[in-house]
Amino acid sequence: MDKSLTMPTISGQAGSRLEAGPQGKRPRKTLSSRNIIVYGALGLAALYYLVPLYVMVVTSLKGMPEIRLGNIFSPPMEITFEPWVKAWAQACTGLNCDGLSRGFWNSVRITVPSVIVSIAIASVNGYALANWRFKGSEIFFTILIVGAFIPYQVMIYPIVIALREMGLYGTLYGLILVHSIFGMPIQTLLFRNYFVSLPEELFKAARIDGAGFWQIYFRIMLPMSLPIFVVSMILQTTGIWNDFLFGVVFTRPDTYPMTVQLNNIVNSVQGVKEYNVNMAATLLTGAVPLIVYFVSGRLFVRGIAAGAVKG
C-alpha cells in the first residue's frame, strides 16, 4: 500500500477510494490450476498431433534389423540415410525401379502449370464477378459454388470421355485441365471475395479515368492483390500436390504423380516390406506441402479460412 501514499490526493469520495488501491488478492499470474489444465490439455493434444511425424522420421532413419527388434517410438540407435536414398532412387513400382524421383518430377510438371493456369483463370473470373457483373453472372457463380460440393465421382466419367475425344486423356495437359476446372470454384470464390473487399471507389475512380476491363485488372487490381495471389498459390500448390484421385484416373503409370506412386510403392504386395523405405518415401511426398505450410505460416491459415467452403 506504500505506493498509494505517494499518489496525488484527490478530494471527495471517489478520491479516497482510489487512494486505498486495490484491496482483493492480486490475481496469480503463472501457475494457477486453470493454466495447468489449459496448457496440459494443449500439450497432450500437441503430442497426439506430433507423434506420427516423429514416428515417420525415426523409422525412416533406422535400418530394417533395428525396426524388426520392435519399438516404433524409440529413436534410432544407428542413424542411416540409406532408406531415403532407396526411396528416392531405387524403390520399385511394378517393373520400374527408379524410385520416387520420377513421381516427384511428374508432380512438379503437373503442379506448376496447374497452379499458374488455375490462378490466372480464377483471378480474372473473380474480378469479373466482383466488379463487372452482368446479367446471369451470379447464376453461373452459384452453379460453380454448388458444383464444389458435388462428389468428384459424379463428374469424373464424362470428363474421361471428353478428354479422350480431345486426345488429352492420360496426358499431363489433360490433368492440368482437370485441376484447373476443379480448382475453379474455391479459387474464384477466394478472388471474388477479395476483390469485393477492395474499396469500390477505387474501381470507380479508375473507370472515370478511362481504364477498361483489362487495364483496371492489370494496372490497378493486380498490384493490390499480391497477398491473395500468395494465399491462392499456397492453397493450390498443396491441394494439387496432394491430389490422388485425379492422378490415378487421368494419368498413366509413367506420368503418375508422386502420391499415386507412393501408394503403389508402399501398398505393393510383392517383395519384403521395407518400412523404413516406406516412411522415407512418405516423408518425401509430404515434404513439399509441409515446407509450403511451415514457410507460409499465417497465410496458410488465412487461405483455408477463406476457402473453408471447399471441404
Partner: peptide, 20 residues
C-alpha cells in the same frame, strides 16, 4: 456513354487513390 467520355471528374469520400 462511358464515364471517361462524359467530360466529368470525380472526387470520392475515401479518396480512392491508387495505393501502388
Amino acid at each position: 456513354e462511358e464515364p471517361k467520355d462524359r467530360g466529368i471528374g470525380m472526387v470520392f469520400q475515401s479518396y480512392a487513390l491508387y495505393p501502388q
